[in-house]
């Protein structure tokens, strides 16, 4: 399967007041499930919000699904084909699951006649069909998270951005969710930020490790696991790879701050 690049990021810089969240970041992502790892404050959420076209950026160039979201027409076209689950998932507690997912389908401009079926499909894929008419406020945290995933996939997005989607899911739900991710990854570009290394090891084909707004590592999850050495901290190969890659990146930056990218 040829992997065409669907997300081009060139020299992306994002600042929040005085701090630099993303520092001239370059990134290429294609179809498949792509993990975004990194310590807290590494810039994972900043990157996802920029890619979701909700956050502005200071400088750099973006190309999402072949169009430039800085141009209004391109922005609209990308947004129709985008799915986004923010870390803090704001919703309407008085809505039923079905109402909320249908509302998001309306916002995403899913053709009117296709909405009911799209809503059913999305609810089914996250295992919420049985609770379709339950109000969101009556659902458990894990189920609300699944509502978030359902709204993200209701338009069958080509680019799916999920910020910490497994937070609040119990282990069994997490396993199911990873299976769904792999399924979505066969035809879409899925970018998942997570702090759970095992999410990456089991669900992601590729991994980008961010540290202080820069790319510390980019490769397949197998390569990340192989990057670990015996004295790196961690309980699994991926965890050891994670700490080793982070350590290497930091020492390289300390040695020559300009050269490290």
């Amino acid at each position: 399967m040829t992997t065409e690049t669907t997300v081009h990021v060139d020299g992306l810089t994002v600042r929040h007041r005085r701090t630099t969240a993303l520092d001239a970041l370059d990134l290429r992502i294609g179809r498949g499930v792509h993990g975004l790892l990194g310590p807290n404050g590494a810039g994972k959420t900043s990157l996802i919000r920029v890619l979701a076209t909700v956050a502005p950026y200071r400088s750099g160039r973006l190309e999402l699904l072949g169009v430039d979201p800085a141009v209004p027409a391109g922005r609209t076209s990308v947004r129709r084909r985008l799915g986004y689950l923010p870390q803090e998932f704001g919703h309407y507690p008085g809505f039923t699951v079905r109402e909320f997912v249908a509302y998001m389908a309306w916002l995403k401009e899913v053709p009117k006649a296709a909405v009911p079926e799209a809503v059913e499909r999305a609810m089914e894929r996250v295992g919420l069909t049985g609770r379709a008419d339950a109000r969101i406020r009556t659902l458990s945290g894990g189920m609300v998270r699944r509502v978030g995933i359902a709204q993200a996939i209701v338009n069958d997005p080509e680019l799916l951005l999920l910020d910490e989607p497994t937070a609040g899911l119990d282990p069994e739900q997490r396993v199911e969710f990873r299976a769904l991710l792999r399924e979505l990854g066969t035809t879409s570009t899925v970018l998942v930020s997570t702090h759970l290394v095992e999410d990456v090891a089991t669900a992601c084909t590729e991994v980008t490790l961010l540290d202080e707004g820069r790319v510390a590592f980019c490769g397949t999850s197998g390569e990340l696991a192989a990057a670990g050495d015996d004295d790196a901290a961690g309980d699994s190969p991926t965890e050891r790879g994670y700490t080793a890659a982070l350590r290497r990146h930091r020492s390289a930056r300390a040695a020559s701050p300009e050269a490290a990218v």
Binding site: F95, R98, E99, Y103, W106, K112
Partner: peptide
């Protein structure tokens, strides 16, 4: 299971303002 529900999207859009 649940039967056909009201999924009219514009209705949901209106309701979103109600709540």
């Amino acid at each position: 299971g649940p039967r056909a529900g009201r999924t009219l999207p514009w209705r949901a859009a209106l309701q979103s303002a109600r709540v």
